[in-house]
Computed example of a mutant assay.
Amino acid sequence: MKSLYKRFNELKSEEEIEPMDVSNEEKEAMKQQVRMKIQRRRRVPRVWRNVAAAAIITVASVTAVGIAFPTLASQIPIVSNIFSIFNEDQDGFYTDYEEYAVDIAESQTSKGITIMVDRAVYDGKTVTLTYSVETAKELGQNAGVNSPMDIKHTNGSSGTSTALKKVADNKYVGMITTTPDFDKKPDFVDVSWVPDSIVNYDTMKETAGDWEFHFKLKPMTGDVQLVDQSAAKRGVEITIEEIRFTEISTIIEYSQKVDSAVTDEWEWVTADLAVKDNLGSEYLSNGNGGFSENGQDYHFSTTLKKIDKEATSLIFTPEIYMYNGSGNKNETVMLEPIEIELVKK
């Protein structure tokens, strides 16, 4: 599969495209478009955000079978906790993931490159997978695996893929996530991951191969606190619907309602949440995307790390991004904070 960037390079245009300055507000709006990419039910384009290249790559529906790999040390050096490698950049988000993740320990070798799925976990909202890559070739400082996970029986999914991090000579680790959208939550998720290639995003050189992995995960259980508290301004209403607490994460379900007058004026309206607790600690909000039944009102979710045990409330400040494209008028609207008292169980 050709990368999206390579396809862009092959496009022909009769006009010379001139670079233009972009304001901070426009940059933020574009980041929100990528991070909070909307999905619609029934006709769901599956979209992915690649951290290394900010590229969107297509998903192929596949069924794959992995090969059991008896020991981590036989081909790839042991990394005691791949989650910890990515933890520092993510504000401690993955602190508890290693303890609760399931050992997969499966590998495939193709074209002299061994990819091994290390561990995976499904917190009931998002599947997170860590993996290792070993190759005699130097992959470069900005490389990534050019394929997302596929989960059966979903309306669609969104997710992220990290750049590969070098841990030794010709040995790398990576992490990939997907947030599936189900009509009904299953007892387990059936996951396939079929990497098409490894891409050096600096040179756009791809190394294709034939790797296949297949495994199942049970969702983590957690306590749910129903909320239904809202804030509104400028024709946009944000409602915090529920908070779910698991052993590794805190999942926020929230909705966005937009007046038709707003959608008539703005091409793109989307919401993000700034989150802190009553102790003053701020929480990185990892948006999981969302869906819409009518193209105007949306349901989103976002995931935080575990909340401080001493915290008694969370304060959500909705940030609304109104966007009409590059070079046009764009706005950011801050709503009044929503403070929610936490129910301890």
Rank of each mutant, 00 (worst) to 15 (best):
4 L>E: 10
5 Y>P: 00
11 L>Y: 00
13 S>D: 07
13 S>W: 02
18 E>W: 03
18 E>I: 11
19 P>Q: 03
22 V>C: 03
26 E>T: 10
26 E>M: 01
27 K>G: 04
28 E>T: 07
28 E>Q: 14
42 R>M: 02
42 R>Q: 01
43 R>Y: 08
44 V>H: 13
45 P>F: 10
47 V>Q: 10
50 N>L: 13
55 A>M: 08
66 G>T: 14
70 P>G: 10
75 Q>N: 10
76 I>E: 04
78 I>K: 13
84 S>K: 14
84 S>Y: 07
88 E>M: 06
90 Q>E: 15
92 G>E: 11
99 E>W: 06
101 A>M: 08
103 D>L: 12
109 T>L: 02
111 K>Y: 00
112 G>N: 09
114 T>Y: 03
115 I>K: 04
116 M>P: 07
117 V>H: 07
119 R>Q: 15
120 A>R: 06
121 V>L: 15
122 Y>T: 09
122 Y>C: 11
124 G>Y: 04
124 G>T: 01
129 L>F: 00
130 T>H: 08
134 E>F: 01
134 E>C: 14
135 T>Y: 07
142 N>V: 03
143 A>Y: 02
146 N>G: 04
147 S>N: 05
149 M>S: 10
150 D>F: 15
153 H>R: 14
154 T>F: 04
155 N>V: 05
156 G>V: 02
158 S>C: 03
165 K>P: 00
171 K>W: 00
172 Y>L: 09
172 Y>D: 07
176 I>L: 13
177 T>G: 09
178 T>S: 15
179 T>C: 05
179 T>Y: 00
184 K>C: 01
186 P>Y: 08
187 D>L: 14
187 D>E: 15
189 V>Y: 02
190 D>Y: 04
197 S>I: 01
198 I>H: 01
200 N>K: 08
200 N>G: 09
207 T>M: 01
207 T>L: 02
209 G>C: 07
209 G>S: 09
210 D>M: 09
212 E>C: 08
213 F>N: 07
214 H>R: 10
220 M>K: 04
224 V>D: 08
237 E>R: 12
237 E>N: 12
238 I>R: 03
244 R>Q: 02
248 I>G: 14
250 T>K: 06
251 I>C: 11
256 Q>Y: 04
260 S>Y: 11
260 S>G: 05
261 A>E: 15
263 T>G: 01
265 E>P: 06
270 T>Q: 13
271 A>N: 13
271 A>P: 06
272 D>I: 04
273 L>R: 07
276 K>T: 03
277 D>W: 04
277 D>I: 12
285 S>C: 12
287 G>N: 10
289 G>I: 05
300 F>K: 14
300 F>N: 09
302 T>D: 11
304 L>Q: 08
306 K>C: 11
307 I>T: 14
309 K>E: 14
309 K>W: 03
310 E>M: 02
312 T>A: 12
315 I>M: 09
315 I>D: 05
316 F>C: 09
319 E>R: 13
320 I>G: 12
321 Y>W: 08
322 M>K: 15
326 S>K: 15
328 N>D: 11
332 T>K: 15
339 E>G: 14
343 V>Y: 01
344 K>I: 12
